[in-house]
């Protein structure tokens, strides 16, 4: 790790001020992407602004129509939350599938969403559920937020403060883990709301998380795994690596989507 200066603000405003004032500053939330990257000397922030002291960023709130999760809420807290389990069980299940127990005790939803790793799980939930990413400056619809590999709509000095998820009628997440890293090789989140059906795919796309329009169309006719039978995702635009070439990934998108729909419809 290269040397850096460490800052621990206690409010979002303080954090934003630090980010505005300091050179080459980076936010650390759970740190489970940033710190390993820094250890490998692949990131070299001169200043590290730690959000762990900002209590206003923690917590889960449920209203009639949505669940809102503070950015510094850990994966473990989401997975264990009675509110999340009751309102959007698929989201609690997704959180439980991230990393391992120790990672889930540190990793946060805000960190995951801000980092937008193309193999991360939360982006699929955000996109499929039509979440709103709330920052210290504005609210951003998930459709407008995820811009590509590790790229988001966040501007300089903008801090994710919470993520608000509309409560769906039915939803499920199916993850095919990378055998080594356990990130999503292919993860498919399906959600059915009154007005809309969404299928979001993570881990597979060259540009990160994306929606599978053809599957959404097919599911509009009937929200059932059968509706996706024979539907294949094209290999174009997908990632290929030693664990899964584009053909296999494309195939897995279909399998995971069908299984996710089956899980969502079986939930009653």
């Amino acid at each position: 790790m290269y040397a850096f200066a460490y800052h621990r603000p206690t409010s979002v405003r303080q954090a934003a001020n630090l980010l505005g004032k300091l050179d080459e500053a980076k936010i650390v939330a759970g740190g489970h992407t940033l710190l390993p990257t820094m250890k490998q000397r692949l990131a070299a922030p001169a200043n590290l602004v730690d959000l762990n002291g900002v209590n206003e960023l923690r917590g889960i709130e449920r209203s009639g129509r949505s669940v809102t999760i503070g950015a510094m809420t850990t994966h473990a807290e989401v997975a264990e939350s009675a509110d999340v389990k009751a309102a959007i069980p698929a989201l609690a299940e997704l959180a439980e599938m991230i990393g391992d127990p120790a990672v889930r005790h540190r990793g946060t939803i805000g960190g995951s969403v801000a980092n937008n790793d193309p193999a991360a799980d939360y982006p699929a939930a955000c996109l499929a559920l039509g979440a709103t990413i709330v920052t210290n400056k504005r609210k951003i619809a998930a459709d407008e937020y995820f811009k590509g590999l590790f790229e988001t709509a966040l501007g300089d000095g903008e801090i994710v403060t919470k993520v608000s998820f509309p409560i769906p009628q039915k939803a499920a997440y199916m993850k095919f883990r990378n055998p080594a890293s356990r990130y999503a090789l292919v993860g498919v989140f399906v959600a059915k709301r009154a007005a809309e059906i969404r299928v979001a795919v993570t881990g597979a796309g060259q540009n990160g998380v994306f929606r599978w329009a053809a599957a959404e169309e097919a599911l509009k006719k009937r929200f059932a795994a059968k509706s996706l039978e024979g539907l294949a995702h094209p290999a174009e635009g997908l990632n290929g690596d030693i664990h899964a070439d584009v053909t296999y990934r494309a195939h897995l998108i279909g399998v995971m989507a069908r299984r996710a729909v089956a899980a969502a419809t079986d939930r009653e």
Binding site: G31, N52, A76, A102
Partner: peptide, 12 residues
Amino acid sequence: RAIKACTILALQ
């Protein structure tokens, strides 16, 4: 709570 001591700064 269990955490990985290799992925947290002492200052944290």
